[in-house]
């Protein structure tokens, strides 16, 4: 089990489009089967193995359930790694990021900050949906050039996720 990739662990072929409900169900079954409590009286080695397996199943589930981490993992399986020290991005994309950050910073001063936050959230989530659709198409085609494109999309999605987390922090502060 420890040698299987995360998709195999869940009895699936590697793909971006997944049925999340069936993964969640399979996750609960697997967790039950290897739960360390079941091995409380088992020999040391078996007990250790069950702990390792439970951790691996948990990690697999956390990775597969969200589009961003699932896409990163799929790229890895295809031998495409993301270099986090690579700071070059499309200028237009960075410009837009700057503007979105500025809009977020200005929310506090708005007469109705919650309405401004909601508008901004709609914008960000709309862009995220577009990126996820792009990823779905790229992984669906499976061509190498499409996968290289998916790498860029994953990087962009990481910026959007960060932005969304900051928006959520501000939202909590304002409540």
């Amino acid at each position: 089990m420890l040698q299987q990739n995360y998709f195999e662990l869940f009895g699936l072929k590697p793909a971006f489009e997944l049925d999340i409900d069936s993964i969640a169900a399979r996750y609960r079954d697997l967790q039950r089967a290897v739960h360390p409590d079941k091995f409380a009286n088992a020999p040391d080695q078996e007990r250790r193995l069950s702990v390792q397996q439970a951790a691996q199943i948990n990690e697999a589930y956390q990775t597969l359930k969200l589009p961003l981490s699932r896409a990163r993992y799929l790229l890895e399986l295809n031998g495409i790694t993301l270099n986090d020290n690579d700071t070059a991005m499309e200028p237009m994309f960075l410009m837009e990021q700057m503007e979105l950050r500025e809009s977020l910073a200005e929310v506090r001063g708005k007469p109705d900050p919650f309405a401004a936050l909601m508008t901004l959230r709609d914008t960000i989530e709309g862009k995220e949906r577009d990126f996820v659709a792009d990823l779905s198409a790229a992984f669906g085609s499976g061509e190498q050039s499409a996968l290289e494109g998916a790498r860029e999309t994953v990087r962009k999605l990481q910026f959007m996720e960060k932005l969304l987390r900051e928006l959520e922090e501000l939202e909590e502060e304002l409540v």
């Binding site: 993301l82 690579d86 700071t87 991005m89 700057m98 962009k156 990481q158 910026f159 996720e161």
Partner: peptide, 13 residues
């Protein structure tokens, strides 16, 4: 100069 760090989502101009 505009750059960005995808790992943490930082943007710098």
């Amino acid at each position: 100069g505009m750059v960005g760090a995808p790992a943490c989502g930082d943007v710098m101009r």
